[in-house]
Amino acid sequence: MTWILVIIGIFRFAAPVAFAAIGETISEKSGLINIGIEGIMMMAAFTAALVSEVTGSPWLGLAAGAGGGLVMGDIQSGFVIRLAADQIVVGMGLNLLGIGLSRTLYRIRWGGADAIVQVPELPDFGGWADPVVLTLPFVAWGAHWLIFKSRWGLAARAAGEYPEAAESAGFSVQMIRFKAHLLGALLAGVGGAYLSLGISGSFSEELTAGRGFVAIALVTFGRWKPMGVLGAALLIGAAEQLQFWLQGLGLGVPHQLFGALPYVLALAVLAASVQRTRAPQALAQPYIKVK
């Protein structure tokens, strides 16, 4: 029975970053790289915590977190799609916005930076079956179907590889990228909301702790395939669990080094494999419609 709990634990720790990374995969497949996930997750985590506290309903909180992610994504899409601005510059701007805004509003709402805030948490049935975590494999599978099996996915992949071809086949590259981007922001919002409502039951200034950046790396690690990305996220989750486990054993093993392990692993895998797996050709290139 314990090994089931271990697996559930891995899924729980992996869930926030997995949702965000699966969303980023959809976005990147259409040619948009979103560096602003960290900011989106922070903002979503804050909105979720706030709404959950005010209404007393974690489910409304979850919806609000997803909505917060959507709003952030919508702002971003105005810059990267409509104005065809540099995606990395805008993404960094969005990070600052999400991090700065959530921290400032947190101070105004709950007082000092050291305030410990408890908000209503999402329930887990039978003590382990967390509904959000249970949907994770289905979300990954759904993303896989959307990208690789559906007609829209074919057009989205074309927009990410060779946007001119997609446009001349009668698709609107801007509209495809807009939808893909919003879907990515929505999933990042769910990931952020799950951090505050599912894992910590609170909000703090360091809640996301760089998970939004890890999500971007995971997409490359998982080779732009939702199932691969989920696997990569679970690997990171397992390494995190291992870290706590070793810490608990008190063997005098420097557990901080195990904290670095997932990132070293990700970097090593990328260095060993990236040339054999191609990124979408038009990734991070602004698309300007020829009139």
């Binding site: 601005a85 805008v90 990070n95 600052l96 700065g100 400032t104 101070r107 930076a113």
Partner: peptide, 24 residues
């Protein structure tokens, strides 16, 4: 006041996005 250095990040964000907008 209730604010701290986090508010500077918001100013930075607005400035970055503002410059992107102005440039385009």
């Amino acid at each position: 006041s209730q604010l701290d250095s986090s508010v500077v990040l918001v100013v930075q964000a607005a400035a970055v996005l503002g410059i992107v907008w102005a440039a385009s």
